[in-house]
Simulated assay, not measured.
Amino acid sequence: MAEYTKAFEKYTHRSSSAQPSFDVYRNQVLALMADLKHKNRGKQSIDQQAAMGIIRSTAAKRYKKYEVNNEQLLDLIFAVLKLQPTLKGYVIKLIEKTYGDIGLASRIKQLDFRHTKLNFPFADADLHEVREKYLSIPQNVNINFVNNVAHLKVLVHQLEEVSKSDYPYVGLDAEWSPYLSKSKASILQLALQKVIYIIDLDALIDKKELLDFFDKLFGNDKICKIGFRFSEDLTQLRGCAPNCLSLYEPKNLICIQSLFFDVSFFYLH
């Protein structure tokens, strides 16, 4: 322990009175090394109290403020209970007793969150539906779902054509769970001039073709990539392909927010 104390003072430049116990220090170092080696990518967790708070607040938005619908609430509940299955009884009681939604409560009772994947029939969804107060996708813009290697290869070919065209612009947006302590992007939305691709990254994780796709997209300076506050998106995408160098040094990537601030500064001064 004397050697540990000396090492702590030498490498942290702090007095030994501030040092954690050796076991705590050891576990923290092991966790850090595992993160650096990307061994914890599949380990996701959520604090139980935080999980309960998230479900309570979202249920209130559903039944009191009408800001979310049943599918959105169920999607959240599924994501949380997959990580905290012991909260299933609490959730059922909240939905059934507090809010009187017997139908949704029954649906939750029937699901085994540890072994079930919640599938939403995207093919049946009307993504062109016009909704008040929201932007809608034009009817002449196609929407394609990419959830296997074959579809991804088609998209890569499309990007090659885009890079040679007179409209080499791609809009990007990634989605991930904000509730997980260790999150990574699960969806990447990619918009071309007349087509939108929704890429299921979870279905393609650990496929070498996904890394190739990221390289072809972010490593190609002929394609102008446009995102909004995309730095965090990049961080989440790196969780899917931590060895992809293009995600650390993307070429020709424009942040709309930064561009807006730059233009505003120019005109104001």
Rank of each mutant, 00 (worst) to 15 (best):
K133W: 15
F260V: 12
V141P: 00
A2C: 05
R229H: 15
S165T: 06
F230A: 03
K216N: 14
K64C: 13
L180K: 11
Q19H: 12
R56H: 15
I199L: 03
F260G: 12
R229K: 15
S45A: 07
F120Y: 15
K117P: 05
E232L: 12
Q84F: 09
L190D: 04
H115G: 10
M33E: 11
K208T: 12
E161I: 08
L118Q: 05
A105D: 06
D23R: 14
K93A: 10
Y25P: 03
T12L: 15
R56W: 13
L83W: 03
F213L: 04
P250D: 09
N119Y: 02
S165N: 09
R131T: 10
I223C: 05
V68I: 12
E96P: 02
K88E: 00
I187A: 00
Y66R: 09
E160P: 01
R62V: 02
R107C: 00
D75K: 07
F266R: 11
A2Y: 14
Q158V: 07
H128F: 07
D200A: 07
Y63G: 00
Q139L: 13
F8W: 15
K222N: 09
K6Q: 14
L94C: 05
L152D: 04
G89Q: 06
Y25W: 15
V91N: 09
D173G: 08
H38F: 14
Y25H: 14
A174Y: 00
V195P: 03
F113N: 00
L87W: 02
R107I: 02
V80D: 12
A203I: 02
Y169T: 04
Y4T: 00
N70Q: 14
D101S: 06
L237G: 03
